[in-house]
Design a binder for these strands. Structure first.
Lengths: 114, 114
DNA sequence: CGCTCTACCTTGCGCCGCCAGGTACTCTGT
DNA sequence: ACAGAGTACCTGGCGGCGCAAGGTAGAGCG
């Protein structure tokens, strides 16, 4: 594994889940599409081996709903959408993320505690 | 486990390590002190079971150095300090963190990709 | 000399990101 | 009609890390 990739891999923990939720907040998306869009991001590139199990977890957890749909060209796709539970979970993360981000910025940013 | 604690636990992954490095950047600190200071932070509270193995990993990895010192009252303490390797690792994280933070802000902040 | 406080560390568990491998359907070219 | 490429889905096993729980040992006090 590359140098910086290992660092980013650890950072994704606990965050990737909500990035995926946010991606299907306004528009239904399917697995491969999510993988491709994440690959365009700098530090959030995740492979299929990460995304598909993640989507299954979120579906089983009731945060995502899914329905099959035909593709214009190719095999059928499973489109994911946000459930009310997923929506509130995402809302909760948004507040938690701000707090977390500020704490890390304060601690790591300058090196001084207060 | 409490509701929000589980979320924060995932967020700490890959970040806590560098928060600890930053804490000993300018001043040597010992284990229990680090635990107590992190407990004061909102979303970064980590217990001994997290911190001590983490400190051992960082020491074995050459990012931290340690030396024993007497306590004014109580058992001796193991004080940790930042090595050159740890210093450059921390510097690298600071740039990576900014990139990561911006990506998450962009994706989760509004829900729109671009 | 017990009792408490401080400080260190370890064991085992569970979760999750990831690599590698696998299945199946669609479309294209010959 | 059929091989090959492209698309899309999923799974098994590994490794790392945060964490709860449990353990050791010295210092100070009554």
């Amino acid at each position: 594994m590359a140098e910086g990739a290992q660092l980013a891999s650890g950072l994704r923990r606990g965050t990737l889940e909500f990035c995926v939720l946010a991606m299907v907040e306004f528009e239904d998306r399917y697995g491969t599409e999510i993988v491709r869009r994440l690959a365009e991001e700098q530090t959030l590139a995740a492979t299929e081996g990460t995304i598909y199990p993640l989507l299954s977890r979120l579906r089983r957890g009731g945060l995502l709903d899914s329905k099959w749909a035909e593709s214009p060209s190719g095999p059928p796709r499973r489109y994911y959408s946000l459930t009310p539970t997923g929506r509130s979970s995402l809302a909760y993360f948004r507040t938690e993320w701000v707090s977390f981000r500020q704490t890390v910025d304060r601690l790591v940013g300058t090196g001084e505690i207060a």
